[in-house]
């Protein structure tokens, strides 16, 4: 009986859109997300299993075939994949690690346009120049009073990963900042 039932999935930012001068805000599609933790010795084995080379350089990310690994700390990566669940690829791996599904903990906002960096700098204290935070750069940081993971996916497109209950605040703050002209 239960198998026949289906219930609706609702995006935390359903219905949120913003388009302003120089910047647009778009809720990102649902995605599989895994918090991956492991010692240095496990990195090669896990990279093989995941099909993406876990980056070892701070503030960098690697994307291969739609799967991205973001360096968050010396033993911590955020895996994002819209199509297939990284947890599935980690099932039988012997290499010491801890993987936790956080697909629903986070949601994401895409901030795009020539004014994207300025709008994010309305609440984020990091240097977002291309020199300091180029394409592919990623970092856990602060936006206003919320913690985010900031990831520059293209020169003028940032992805902001945020816990779901903070997403409304972050979206609202970005929209307010975007009204300032980007």
């Amino acid at each position: 009986m239960a198998e026949a039932m289906t219930i609706e999935r609702r995006h935390p930012l359903a219905g949120h859109v913003f388009a302003g001068t120089g910047v647009a805000l778009t809720p990102a599609h649902a995605a599989f997300r895994t918090s991956l933790r492991c010692p240095s010795a496990s990195v090669p084995g896990l990279s093989d299993a995941l099909g993406v080379a876990l980056p070892r350089t701070p503030k960098t990310s690697v994307t291969e075939k739609g799967r991205s690994a973001l360096w968050l700390g010396p033993d911590e990566w955020l895996l994002i994949d819209e199509k297939t669940d990284p947890m599935a690829d980690l099932g039988g791996i012997d290499a010491l690690h801890a993987a936790v599904d956080i697909s629903h903990r986070n949601t994401a906002i895409l901030v795009s346009g020539p004014g994207a960096a300025d709008v994010i700098n309305a609440g984020c204290p990091q240097d977002l120049s291309m020199e300091a935070f180029g394409t592919g750069a990623c970092s856990r940081t602060i936006f206003g009073k919320a913690e985010i993971v900031l990831w520059r996916v293209k020169p003028s497109v940032f992805r902001i990963e945020v816990w779901r209950s903070f997403s409304d605040y972050v979206f609202g703050y970005l929209a307010e900042a975007a009204r300032d002209g980007g």
């Binding site: 010396p74 856990r140 940081t141 602060i142 913690e147």
Partner: peptide
């Protein structure tokens, strides 16, 4: 602690 960074 780099709480809102690498968390170390």
């Amino acid at each position: 602690r780099h709480l809102h960074g690498c968390a170390r």
